[in-house]
Amino acid sequence: MIDYLVAFTNELSRYIIPLLLVGIPFYGLVVKKVKVYESFVDGAKDGFTIAVRIIPYLVAILVAIGMFRASGALDMLLIFLSPMLNAMGFPPENLPLALMRPLSGSGSLGLLTDLINEHGAESIIAKIGATMFGSTETTFYVLAVYFGSVGIKRSRHALAAGIIADTVGIISAVYLCQLFFAQ
């Protein structure tokens, strides 16, 4: 049942974008008689201004993250935290990914790839990693880009709430996988 559902959604996901790109103008032009070409161009103009506006915010965040990783500070944090996490039943192999996930999408994808190559896709470590990756977001990046695009400097409780959500996602990933896949 589950296998079928997964195969179906994966198959469906290949058609979502083409269907949206055709379906929306179809509804506009055929049903509502909207000048679809003119509205498309009109809306598309905003793409440039928004993309350019986020540059300074993205530079600030990505530089700090890049420095932190390159200095070895992230690895030190891992060594420092691993005894405590071991005691909680949190596999230390999954910790780098958990810490990297809110900071960097490409960095955490690299770590996930590494986990799967090292332990195999059928291992519980890979399954925990993949679940973690799918159930959390790159919070710092989203925050910088979204707030940066409108010039918000005081982000109030958004960061704290985002981190809480990520933590819940990561811990759930570990315990759910142990519940479902433990031998």
């Binding site: 103008p25 506009g28 809306g43 793409g47």
Partner: peptide, 15 residues
């Protein structure tokens, strides 16, 4: 990508 989706979105909005 922004231009593509914001353009499509504009059509969705006006219709």
């Amino acid at each position: 990508i922004m231009a593509l989706w914001l353009g499509t979105m504009k059509i969705a909005e006006e219709s």
